[in-house]
């Protein structure tokens, strides 16, 4: 794969949908800037879908899901990985860079403003009390989001075992994340390896 500045060739599929090639860079920047400035509360995938698939029609559902699949399988945040992949498909490397800057700049500017204010008010009792409240609420939100994703993808006892092993290794045995990833990861993928008599392509162990 050469690192050319040309966009990846648009995938031709049965629906005949082709990713537009002539989207101006400023339009990519502005679209991701708006998503970056309005996506509060973590659910950035919903904002991306609304902006890219529904409003701009730069991607159809299928291409959106394929980009999301890559973002989730690889390290990094969905928001920035999606911006880079979609920007690249629209306008090559320049599109990827501009989309990444767009989605991160509003939050980056605001978090730095808050960070500088925090650094000079770190011993203010009101600031501390408010941040304890925010931190506690964040625990509840993280737990809720984990449950939502867990319920959607939960596949029975095998999954439960993998979850328990992972939490035990990270939270209670304090094993470094890199070791958890290189042991549990391949083991989990091996458990769900393709079977010879798996004809439906679901990856489920054949009965």
């Amino acid at each position: 794969m050469s690192a050319s500045a040309e966009p990846a060739p648009p995938a031709d599929d049965s629906t005949g949908y082709v990713i537009p090639r002539d989207v101006p860079l400023w339009d990519i920047f502005l679209t991701f800037l708006v998503i970056g400035a309005t996506s509060f509360g973590g659910g950035v995938v919903a904002y991306l879908r609304a902006g890219l698939v529904i409003r701009k029609k730069w991607l159809d559902e299928e291409h959106f899901m394929s980009a999301l699949e890559i973002s989730q399988a690889l390290p990094g945040l969905n928001a920035t990985n999606m911006a880079i992949i979609v920007g690249d498909r629209l306008r090559g490397i320049a599109g990827a860079v501009i989309a990444f800057l767009g989605i991160t700049l509003p939050g980056a500017a605001l978090v730095m403003l808050l960070g500088v204010l925090y650094a000079s008010n770190a011993s203010n009792p009101y600031v501390n009390a408010a941040l304890v409240g925010v931190g506690s609420a964040a625990v509840g939100m993280l737990a809720a989001v984990t449950m939502q994703i867990g319920r959607k993808q939960f596949g029975g006892l095998i999954d439960a075992a993998i979850i328990v092993v992972t939490v035990t290794m990270v939270s209670f045995l304090h094993i470094s994340l890199i070791w958890v990833l290189v042991t549990v990861g391949p083991a989990a993928v091996f458990i769900y390896r393709p079977r010879k008599n798996d004809t439906d392509g679901t990856g489920e162990p054949a009965a």
């Binding site: 737990a143 984990t146 994703i149 993998i162 979850i163 549990v184 993928v189 769900y192």
Partner: peptide, 12 residues
Amino acid sequence: KGMAPLVIGLMA
């Protein structure tokens, strides 16, 4: 399929 439960465990 393999990475999904690992990710859920890491989020927890």
